[in-house]
Design a protein around this nucleic acid. Structure first.
Length: 440
RNA sequence: CGGGGCUUGGCGCAGUCUGGUAGCGCACCUGGUUUGGGACCAGGGGGUCGCAGGUUCGAAUCCUGCAGCCCCGACCA
């Protein structure tokens, strides 16, 4: 992509309304614009990151056997009355009336709708297990939206739902998603800590929040530091996952909501106690037959009797992750994107557009990198060098490639590692080779 | 919803106390000089001061009401 053709409205100064770093940087880097409180437009650069995160989620969901679908944002009130949540949900739910005076709502989550779809289509245990998910915009009319996209009212969420014949099978479905979440966050360059979460009226041990560490996080995490060194498993979903899950869950790990100081001190040796702040980016739980009972989602079992299906639901805050990743990955100059979610891999800076040799070498490198399936943002604008450097640092692409008249004459490219700031001057071919890989 | 703060060109702000008809920096446009870390000079365009009402000869400034946004708390991916 040529920057001269792109829409990248960067801000030199910090917008007054943005208090936390990810919000400031997202506005400054031209990723989002606020529409109203907690509601954002995603500009081209921001949308690229959002899509990269969603694609990682998609790939990992597919490996775990989940199927993508797409449900609408607007749902009829009736099914929520069936489950009993229409009244329970309160003011957080945005209610809408159409021209025929029918009650609709902008979905804050999709248990009811997926349960309706499932019950209308599945009759036999032989069609189980199933795991269906979608990535769709949600709306929760938060009392106080804040922190940019981290706590928006409208947000993009991957939400998945599993259907099984009994609790034992549901537990297995839960484990698969547990593993897929560990893998997904890892691929995004994040260290996620699964912490025990409140299971509500269902009880049991099958609810976990996934929290990434960040200074500005809203949650406080208390855990055994060995949780941080647990291996992220291979995507082998035919294996017994229990040992992997136990590796994580055998140690104390809780957020402030569930924290038990006495238990923490009793179970965790002093030198292993980790207390840190974090951001909740995922939440999974098993809720048994809560919705299948209320909404009569029954299947006929092997014995010929109808039984309600056992369900679980699994959420990842896709739009929140954009902010979360920035909270975890930035420095004084701007964002420092992990390779896997970077909007572009490489920022190519032409220091002197109009200079024939410089233009030619830039074009050549741009073409070669693109041919290697790398995403390149080529700054071909007629701007001063300093402005280009600052913009590139701000938007945080993993590699910067700088070509000016000096280098063009020698056929050399200066490449900069955005993570370390380290620069080296190399020949064209070597530059391509180096920048094909994530910076160390 | 409770507490606090803010609202003046695209962005960041001053002016409000002590009413006199709007200013600064950045950005933008034109010309020139510059050109490896957010250039310089000259010229120029753009706001009636969140909205509504009131007081006054006169309101960004005083009064009343409303709205939006931000921060702290209770709630959430």
């Amino acid at each position: 992509m040529r920057l001269s053709n792109y829409f990248l409205p960067v801000l030199k100064e910090n917008p007054a309304e943005a208090q936390i770093v990810s919000h400031r940087l997202m506005l400054r880097a031209g990723m989002v614009r606020q529409s109203s409180a907690g509601i954002y437009s995603w500009l081209p650069l921001g949308l690229r990151v959002l899509n990269k995160i969603a694609d990682i989620v998609r790939q990992e969901q597919a490996l775990a056997g989940a199927l993508e679908m797409l449900m609408p944002t607007l749902q009829p009130a009736e099914i929520w009355r069936e489950s009993g949540r229409y009244d329970d949900y309160g003011k957080e739910m945005l209610r809408i009336t159409d021209r025929h005076d029918r009650d609709l709502l902008y979905g804050p989550t999709n248990e009811e709708l997926i349960t309706q779809i499932f019950r209308d289509s599945v009759r036999s245990y032989k069609e189980l297990p199933r795991n269906l998910y979608h990535i769709q915009w949600k709306f929760r009319d938060e009392i106080r939206p804040r922190f940019g996209v981290m706590r928006g009212r409208e947000f993009l969420m991957k939400d998945g739902y599993s259907f099984d014949i009994d609790e034992a099978n549901a537990r297995r479905a839960y484990q698969k998603i547990f593993v897929s979440y560990l893998r997904s966050f890892k691929r995004m360059g994040l260290q996620a800590i699964p912490v025990a979460a409140d299971t509500g009226p269902i009880g049991g041990d099958l609810s976990h929040e996934f929290i990434i560490l960040a200074e500005t996080g809203e949650s406080e995490v208390f855990c055994h530091s060995d949780v941080l060194t647990q291996p992220v498993p291979e995507a082998d979903y035919t294996a017994d996952l229990t040992p992997v899950i136990d590796g994580y869950t055998q140690h104390y790990a809780r957020s402030d909501e569930m924290h038990d100081a006495a238990k923490f001190e009793a179970e965790v040796p002093e030198d292993k106690r980790l207390t840190a702040r974090g951001i909740e980016v995922g939440h999974i739980f098993y809720f048994g037959t809560k919705y299948s009972n209320a909404m009569k989602a029954l299947v006929t079992g092997p014995n010929g009797k109808d039984v309600p299906v056992h369900m679980g639901s699994y959420g990842i805050g896709v739009s929140r992750l954009v902010g979360g990743i920035i909270e975890a990955c930035h420095d004084d100059e701007g964002i420092v994107w992990p390779w896997a979610v970077a909007p572009f891999h490489i920022g190519l800076i032409n220091l002197k557009p109009g200079d024939d040799a410089t233009d030619a070498l830039c074009e050549q490198l741009y073409q070669n990198l693109t041919d290697h399936n790398l995403d390149v943002l080529y700054d071909d604008r007629d701007e001063r060098a300093g402005a280009k450097f600052s913009t590139m640092d701000l938007i945080g692409l993993p590699w910067q490639a700088v070509i000016g008249p000096r280098g063009a004459k020698a056929g050399e490219v200066e490449i900069k590692n955005r993570v370390t700031g380290e620069k080296q001057t190399v020949a064209l071919e070597a530059a391509i080779k180096i920048m094909s890989q994530p910076p160390a």
